[in-house]
């Protein structure tokens, strides 16, 4: 048997995203990996490129009435309603656990006013052990008739710009796919001072119980995630990659290494695994090994060279 060149056997998986150095591009998505501790029995958290925790707000949030989840074709709908422990409890009780790991901790956060976004970012900027912030702008704005920030370029710009001034931490803006033109919103986030973009959040949807003619979710509308949304997410990553110069993090329906590689080729510098964690709690490690195998097999020395390498 012919021996493969040894130099290529260990490809360089490190990526730099929004000023955050990741040892590999595989992260876990907000809301699907709790605060990390829930998954500790199932995988070595040290192997992950990053962990993005459940979205945090200033005060704890109780979330929506149940039922909150329903299975759909190739995915699920959720209307958790951003239930979370609040920034104070997060910093005191959840962050110490995550600090033990040599993995980038990225804190997803949100608010229902620009002031709340700024307040949370300000508090998080003053504590140790946080590599960066991911700002969820798929959140209703109480000053604008509960319209989601991320559905309008001007609101996206305003909130990004305001938060930018409050923190020195790398700021990643997580985009909503529920818009007519994602690249305009992406541009607004870039202009507002974002260091990177994550896309996509869940796509709004619903399901009906035909026996009692009631919605399956108490909230009626929920967010669709899982393989069903992958083509949409991929298309949006590709479109945005052509429009902004910020690093992108691809998320939406990734279940396998092949899925992850598609996103990287389309323009993502890193990827997040969300709903797939529910099917297999150690899926992220499998995706990571699969990406590594792909690089070796295709003699790619550095994953960097794969990013945005789509031939058209």
């Amino acid at each position: 048997m012919h021996k493969v060149n040894n130099n290529i056997s260990q490809p360089d998986l490190t990526v730099n995203v929004a000023g955050i150095k990741l040892k590999n591009p595989v992260m876990t998505a907000s809301g699907t990996f709790g605060y990390g501790e829930e998954y500790e029995p199932y995988l070595d958290l040290n192997r992950l490129g990053g962990i993005i925790v459940k979205g945090i707000s200033m005060e704890p949030r109780e979330g929506n009435s149940p039922p909150r989840i329903v299975e759909t074709a190739a995915g699920m709908l959720n209307s958790i309603g951003l239930q979370n422990v609040g920034v104070e409890v997060f910093v005191d009780q959840k962050l110490p656990f995550l600090r033990k790991y040599d993995t980038a901790v990225i804190v997803n956060f949100f608010g229902d006013s620009i002031e709340e976004y700024c307040e949370v970012a300000n508090i998080l900027g003053a504590v140790d052990g946080i590599a960066g912030l991911e700002m969820n702008i798929s959140c209703p704005n109480k000053q604008e008739g509960w319209l989601e920030f991320g559905t309008r370029p001007d609101l996206t710009f305003k909130v990004t710009n305001a938060v930018r001034k409050k923190t020195d931490l790398p700021l990643i803006v997580k985009l909503s796919p529920n818009v007519t033109d994602i690249s305009t919103i992406a541009k607004a986030a870039e202009d507002g001072g974002a260091d990177g973009l994550s896309l996509i959040n869940t796509i709004t949807g619903m399901a009906v119980n035909i026996e009692n003619r009631r919605p399956m979710l108490a909230n009626i509308i929920g967010g669709l995630s899982g393989p069903a949304i992958k083509p949409v997410a991929l298309r949006m990553v590709w479109q945005v990659a052509g429009k902004v110069s910020l690093p992108l993090i691809g998320v939406g329906g990734i279940m396998t290494a092949e899925d992850a590689i598609e996103f990287i080729i389309a323009g993502a510098s890193a990827i997040q695994i969300g709903t797939a964690n529910f099917l297999d709690p150690s899926v992220s490690i499998k995706v990571l090994s699969g990406v590594e195998d792909y690089l070796i097999k295709n003699r790619v020395k550095r994953i960097d060279s794969l990013i945005g390498s789509l031939e058209t």
Partner: peptide, 13 residues
């Protein structure tokens, strides 16, 4: 109805 089964998704409230 459950998704994660381990307290991570907050779906089975």
């Amino acid at each position: 109805i459950m998704a994660c089964g381990m307290g991570a998704c907050l779906g089975c409230a």
